[in-house]
């Protein structure tokens, strides 16, 4: 019993201590960090690094870019994927099966395969250094997992519901919006959270397609702070906190949904 409690405590500390260090370091000066890297900030809670990072960087801009890209990528992926899932579920024939397999196969292809030709495609289409470009790529790469989860769920809904609505004279669009969507809410919310975390934190595509500061998202901007601030950890950690804040706040309030969403995503490869 003691051993169990002790292990639980150690694991908890392994998570908490690094997070605490991040918070404390963000409130120190560089000199303080060198003098006592693990001590408390000498001047108490001070937020000078936070004001400094907003002055030195176009932090607000990165934040807005990340928000735009994430919101559009998540909502459009959900919209398109749920329409496909509905179509596959209703069709229930070889075309539906073929599309399902086509999307499922996409889950197996690592981003590093399509990224090389994708890079020149984006250049040719003039979609580099553009938030629209990022959104389009994000949607295409997360459609497979979203279609997979949503189709799996919609297939468990009773067919009679759809058929009864058809007999009542409802068209596909009406059945999709009034029957399929409301009933799929649990699966939609889980997928939404999974996509939120994924798109908010994505590094690879911004790294490939964005070079102009005006279009950078938070993870890319953060990565490049490393070049500028080198081992100025107080500044780096201030960036980490600002970039993680929305996810952390959402996690505190929507914990249960996060856990459901992130494990639904894990069932994929």
């Amino acid at each position: 019993m003691f051993f169990r409690r002790f292990s639980l405590l150690i694991y908890a500390l392994l998570i908490l201590v690094p997070l605490l260090i991040v918070i404390l370091t963000s409130m120190k000066t560089l000199q303080e960090t060198f003098r006592s890297p693990l001590g408390f900030p000498e001047g108490g809670l001070q937020f000078e690094n936070y004001t400094a990072i907003f002055q030195e960087q176009t932090m607000a801009g990165y934040f807005i870019n990340s928000t735009i890209v994430t919101l559009f990528s998540v909502s459009l992926t959900l919209f398109f994927a749920s329409m496909i899932a509905y179509g596959i579920t209703r069709l229930n024939n070889w075309i539906g099966n073929f599309l399902f397999i086509l999307f499922t196969l996409g889950m197996m292809v690592p981003a590093q395969v399509s990224m090389i030709p994708l890079y020149s495609l984006m250049l040719n289409l003039g979609l580099t250094n553009s938030l629209l470009g990022l959104i389009l790529v994000n949607i295409s790469t997360t459609l497979p997992i979203a279609v997979f989860i949503l189709t799996g769920f919609m297939k468990t809904l009773p067919r009679e519901l759809f058929e009864a609505s058809t007999i009542d004279g409802a068209g596909n669009w009406k059945i999709y919006t009034k029957v399929a969507m409301p009933l799929s809410l649990p699966s939609l919310s889980a997928t939404a959270i999974f996509l939120f975390v994924m798109h908010w934190n994505d590094l690879l595509y911004p790294l490939l397609f964005i070079t102009d500061n005006a279009y950078k998202t938070l993870p890319l901007a953060l990565l490049e702070f490393q070049g500028e601030y080198s081992t100025n950890y107080p500044m780096l950690f201030t960036g980490v906190i600002i970039a993680s804040a929305p996810m952390v706040i959402a996690y505190v309030f929507l914990q249960r949904y996060f856990v459901a969403g992130m494990t639904a995503g894990a069932v994929k490869g």
């Binding site: 209703r90 999307f103 790529v137 058809t166 596909n172």
Partner: peptide, 29 residues
């Protein structure tokens, strides 16, 4: 039960994006 052909429109936006930004680059690779 017969389903209205309009169902195929449901695939359109997703499949189009998937084909351009995922299948085409993958095959090109």
């Amino acid at each position: 039960m017969k389903i209205s052909k309009s169902i195929y429109f449901f695939f359109l936006p997703g499949v189009l994006l998937y084909a351009i930004f995922f299948i085409y680059p993958t095959i090109s690779a």
